[in-house]
Design a binder for these strands. Sequence first.
DNA 1: TATGAATGAGTTTTCATTCAT
DNA 2: TATGAATGAAAACTCATTCAT
Lengths: 207, 207, 207, 207
Amino acid sequence: MARVTQQHVDARRESILDAAARLFARKGVNSATMSDIAAEAGLSAGAIYRYFGSKDDLLRAVFDEAVERNERLFREESESAPSPLTALQNIGRRIWVEHDDRDSLICEVQMALSAARDPDDFGLDLSRNRQVIRELLKSMIEAAQASGEIDPYIDATALALILQAASGGIQTLKLEDGDSIDIQSAFDLMVQMVSGLRASSSAAHER
Amino acid sequence: MARVTQQHVDARRESILDAAARLFARKGVNSATMSDIAAEAGLSAGAIYRYFGSKDDLLRAVFDEAVERNERLFREESESAPSPLTALQNIGRRIWVEHDDRDSLICEVQMALSAARDPDDFGLDLSRNRQVIRELLKSMIEAAQASGEIDPYIDATALALILQAASGGIQTLKLEDGDSIDIQSAFDLMVQMVSGLRASSSAAHER
Amino acid sequence: MARVTQQHVDARRESILDAAARLFARKGVNSATMSDIAAEAGLSAGAIYRYFGSKDDLLRAVFDEAVERNERLFREESESAPSPLTALQNIGRRIWVEHDDRDSLICEVQMALSAARDPDDFGLDLSRNRQVIRELLKSMIEAAQASGEIDPYIDATALALILQAASGGIQTLKLEDGDSIDIQSAFDLMVQMVSGLRASSSAAHER
Amino acid sequence: MARVTQQHVDARRESILDAAARLFARKGVNSATMSDIAAEAGLSAGAIYRYFGSKDDLLRAVFDEAVERNERLFREESESAPSPLTALQNIGRRIWVEHDDRDSLICEVQMALSAARDPDDFGLDLSRNRQVIRELLKSMIEAAQASGEIDPYIDATALALILQAASGGIQTLKLEDGDSIDIQSAFDLMVQMVSGLRASSSAAHER
DNA sequence: TATGAATGAGTTTTCATTCAT
DNA sequence: TATGAATGAAAACTCATTCAT
């Protein structure tokens, strides 16, 4: 296998990362053994160590990739969308509705991680990442408020938190109860609820 | 030793259950060791086995209790509230805002469980439980629609799913990022968004 | 085993330390497995971890104890002996001739350690310890020179090095070829060689 | 490929043997991995197996070569030296003072081996080898006694043991504390101590 | 009943060895 | 011949569970 160059190595790395993300999300970080992951990737346990120094390294890599995907998602949509609200909707659609196996992991992995690990280890990074996302959401909401798409009297921070919570929750439910759920309808309704905030503006700032 | 009556036994059982729930939520099911739990309950590791046959039994008991609490929560509120929407709001408030350590576990434990276990074991029960909750929510929403508190053209199933997802997500965020979050504002906004569905009804059923 | 107090715990710790020292010396640090050590101590592998956090901890403990024994040996003899040379001889005798299994490990363990480990880990401590011993030997030799027991023209540093080398070497040989060796005669001759340095003084400082 | 002749194969074998000896001595037999050795020899791990059937084979080969070098050392010196004592001194000098990396391994390797391996495997050979060396030393000492260079009342066996022990010990110290040691002075003193045995003869056999 | 020492099965990790290229 | 990816058999370590006290 002397000729199996970088390309092959990269592909392997990817497939391990993929398998790990899948299993971390499915079984939890602790329950997913290196053997499980190796099997899922079509390898023996020991082989993984050629690509990742330890289970923790692998975990970190999965996490980093999830973070990166998330950022890319936000960046792409906010750059290409015609308006802030549209951007928000597109991001929401991609998280709620459209997704391959890999995309769905963006949030699950983080939740699985946080549920399964000592906060001292990863917790800070996870928490920081969630906060960053919340800030991004808040900025987009404020932009939408500035452009008149969302009621300016709404508490942007609170809305960002709700969107994050609902998205996270939906990911978990999709992952676990996948078949018995009609995501599309839920997403449409969510959009409607956010849009509805325009009409109810007077009620809002009088509370 | 005959004097160590049922009362004492029950108290011990309770405190173990309590400690277990706390630790399962805090560290994840796998990372919480029997010794951890015993220490948290003020016992030695071996003693737990007098009250629960195995860690799995304990896990199951914690789960069952969480389910039971959840049911009690719904029952109490729907019986005492003056209207369906108020009931929903009260339930929401108790889940989002008011809660002692124990209550906050209602959802976390479920998430922790689902994140940490092989779906073959617990998954079905968890999934079934979540479905039951969704049905309950749906019934309450439909009741609110019947009484004119919520726009009747709204998809009750979708709303139930959103409420469940958001509540679950909020629990996780509270558990992990607790300090940096303003739950009360988020809850108020959530209430407003659900209420807002009344005003936007015409838009909704024309989609 | 609730009543098995500190005394029992200490005894266990001792016996594990004992077994570990024996096996480290006999098979080398790497080849001596935790199971080996446990078996030698009459335990299962896992049990050791109740007393020592890791194999490295155990190694360190064995090392520390060896150092301590060594120091005690030097201290006792140099305090109680009637003269510096006698002290040196007594120390020598205890290292070369008299010794139970445990004492013989004083040096072997250090050699086994150094032979089997990455110098980055333990090497510095080992080296420092050996240097300390050499300094002690040198001081004793100089005292003997001051009191006229050893030729003052002898290079005390060089003699200390020789004594340390010979003692270390002897320990290894004893450990490995034990039965086929007549230690007593070798020790007597060594004493004679050191004593002989008195007579050859003139030759020495004329070189 | 037919051109890659015996010459090339032998050179490769030599360089692997060299690398292995160096690493066995430096890191210990267990800690030196086949990859380490291969890298040190400028090869890949798998390639070694073209020259040595297994790590154990390689170990054995290193050992055998060390033995052979040792024997050659003794043979050369005892043949070329003008007198038995001079031969002993020359051998000593080559072991204590002069040596390239490879020569210094003569003893270290044996010590590393013995420290790192189950006595059942190699131990016997090692022990036998050491005994052979001791016998050689003894013969040379006896020759020196016969020629009047060393006091005939000295116990030749005991002196051989001391020389072997001191040489072995020195090798270890040199390997590990190399820089902080003045070998030359120690060697000179050792020579002096052996020579001194001439003068102290009367004292010796009267003890 | 409670303790906590001990066991043993399971998990991560390492590395000699094999083998497709 | 040489490579280095992959395997698989240990070895370190963890922890649910048992049991003598």
